[in-house]
Design a protein around this nucleic acid. Structure first.
Lengths: 190, 190
DNA sequence: CTCATTTCTTGAAGTAGTTCAAGTTTTTTA
DNA sequence: TAAAAAACTTGAACTACTTCAAGAAATGAG
């Protein structure tokens, strides 16, 4: 049922069959329709989402009322608001499906119990979150050192398939420039 | 000897006296002089640094040859290049002392061994890195939604003491604007 | 205390990006 | 398969910031 997640966990730590059973019994796969929200600003985020299939995004609505995507989550990524999750504070973010997707949603009490029953999961989540933090550091580096055009080309080189997969205006805001500017970059009109 | 770190760990998990002993025996405090480097670009980052006293920063040298601070680390923060650490790849960053500082430096083999001997440390590092990731998400939000002036005032409200502690030009680059612009913001000349 | 170094300030000129508004194309839905 | 909705394009006007250059102030080292 949840092979995708098991395979991901096995990359970082080896589970016993009994542990797989325990885990299996706590998980359920849910379908999320395109544009459906898993988290809204102001809610307390109590759930971690593992993307089995499809694409989610985390976004905010800025002071001008327009959406800015801060993060995408595709297959084998976790997505959640970790600050709201840990501190029980209202979230600053929306989490929404960009495509029809399938996710494993784990509620905090379930996960807390699992982490106690299967301490290896502590290791798994440690490594995953340390790597994500490392990736975020690189992201900040790119935001700081590259021009809008460089960011676009760099992203397009690294993830050409992904660029086709999401609306341009979402990617533009993720790369921190306007949709109009992206259009001009792509047309080579500068 | 290393109370600062023990106190920090105890916030997230409770260590047995024997575990404290084990840990104690693996740690050593080192002094770092202002401007001294703990990591240089191109090196493989093999060490995690816990700041006991003082202030470190992670920075890059951009294409124009000037320094840009990506992260500060003060008392009770860990600082390292987690991507280089996990992937054994050359680091993109410098880590340098901003003030004369004291750090606990843990080498990767030591830490790996400790995580096996004291599994509770997996939990500690998981929570710390998840919270750091959450903080990074907020940082990106601020970078995306606030003007330079707003970022300065917001930071200055949140961390007034810290603003006094580091050179203005370092803080300016951390907030992603020029030192000259910072000077004008502070003078109210806009 | 004094000289050298580092940090901060100021103004003028330039630019990488935004915003707006309108039109076009593509995708979705019924 | 038509109509509606969503996504993309284009150009013109604007602006938030950068860059440069030079001087002033603060800090540090011997």
């Amino acid at each position: 049922m949840h092979e995708a997640l098991f395979r991901h966990i096995e990359k970082f730590t080896n589970l016993e069959p009994s542990e797989i059973d325990t885990l299996e019994s706590c998980l359920q796969l849910s379908k999320v329709k395109k544009k459906e929200h898993l988290l809204q600003e102001g809610q307390i985020c109590n759930t971690m989402y593992f993307v089995v299939k499809g694409c989610l995004r985390q976004y905010i609505i800025n002071t001008k009322g327009s959406e800015q995507t801060l993060q995408f989550g595709i297959e084998n990524w976790w997505i959640t608001d970790l600050l709201s999750y840990h501190n029980h504070t209202p979230s600053n973010f929306y989490i929404q499906a960009v495509e029809n997707s399938e996710v494993i949603a784990i509620e905090k009490p379930t996960l807390e119990a699992l982490l106690i029953q299967i301490p290896k999961l502590e290791r798994y989540f440690r490594i995953v979150s340390q790597k994500s933090f490392g990736a975020m550091q690189m992201r900040i580096k790119f935001l700081f050192t590259m021009s809008a055009e460089e960011r676009y080309h760099h992203f397009n080189n690294q993830f050409p398939e992904f660029v086709q997969r999401v609306p341009q205006y979402m990617l533009a805001s993720y790369l921190d420039f306007s949709a109009e500017f992206m259009s001009k970059i792509r047309a080579g009109k500068l």
